Computed example of a mutant assay.
Amino acid sequence: MSTEGLSSVIANYFDKGIILVIADLLSLITVSSCLVIKVPQINTIRENKSSKGISVNGLCLELFSYTVMMSYNYSSGYEFLSYMEYVLLLIQEYVLIYYTFKYQNLLGQKTKIMTVVYIIIATLIYFKIFPVIILTFLVVIRQQHTQQNMQQQQGFLAQKDILTWFRKIKCLDKDHDATAFIASVEAVMELCLSDNHQLMKLAMTIIIN
């Protein structure tokens, strides 16, 4: 691509407005954060050869949440970047679940049967045979499940305390709490996209920290 062609592409991109450009940047930051968010936890389990203290039910709920959201976005034909974080999280979740089940001696017949069922459903979703209406219903269930957490977030958002919320997001990232991390980022984005001043404040906070 020539220099003029590249300059034209960049100019056309920035023509859509600084707000959307910053929103895209924050989306990329979210995806980048999800890239390795569970890797430290996986490495700790492998090094200690123990998954004691890790909730199997919690992992299964996370798997359900990531799978539903990724499947719904994929089946609805949304842009890949809009749900890429769920793909990255799912890959890490599979590895985390494997080692957790392995060191808790849960890789039995029941787990194998459930894995086969999961793969069959995933295949149906991939070929877009699985009914979208069911995925929509599951998304609603998932949203209701996280509603309590979102209400707690609204307390911070009402105060428009971006710095405090940014620190909370950093703690969630450090604790590898991917579900809460994504929900927190989405809540902040919702506030910032409706308030240009807060969006610029968040961008500066990210740069400073």
Rank of each mutant, 00 (worst) to 15 (best):
T115Y: 09
E85A: 07
I120M: 06
Y78T: 13
I113R: 07
I113T: 15
S82H: 03
S65Q: 03
Q92N: 07
Q104N: 12
S75G: 00
Y78N: 15
E79A: 12
M69Y: 05
F64H: 03
V117M: 13
M114H: 15
K110Y: 14
Y98E: 06
L90M: 07
Y66W: 02
V117F: 15
L81A: 15
F80I: 12
E93D: 12
M69E: 06
V87H: 05
L81E: 11
L81Q: 15
S65N: 05
L88V: 04
N105Q: 14
Y94G: 15
M69H: 08
K110D: 15
L96H: 08
F80T: 14
Y72H: 04
E93Y: 06
K110A: 15
Y103P: 01
M84P: 03
M69V: 00
Y66P: 02
M69K: 02
Y86P: 01
Y99E: 09
Y66G: 00
L90G: 10
L106V: 11
I120L: 10
N73I: 00
N73V: 00
T111W: 10
G77C: 09
V87F: 04
Q109R: 12
F80E: 14
Y83S: 04
T67C: 01
L81N: 11
I119C: 13
Y74G: 03
V68F: 01
F101D: 12
I113M: 12
E79W: 02
K112M: 14
L88F: 04
Y72F: 00
M84D: 05
T67A: 05
S65L: 01
M70T: 00
V116S: 13
V116F: 13
T115F: 12
M70H: 07
Q92M: 04
M69N: 11
Y83W: 06
F64S: 04
M114Y: 14
S75F: 00
L88N: 06
S71M: 00
M69S: 06
E85M: 09
I120G: 09
S76L: 05
Y78C: 14
S75H: 02
V68N: 04
Y74S: 05
M84K: 12
F101M: 13
Y94N: 15
T115M: 11
G77Q: 01
I120T: 10
T111K: 10
M69D: 02
F80D: 10
L106Y: 12
F101Q: 08
M69L: 10
K112V: 08
Y103L: 04
L81H: 12
Y118H: 15
Y86R: 01
E79L: 11
K110I: 13
L81D: 09
I119Y: 12
K110L: 13
Y103A: 03
Y98D: 10
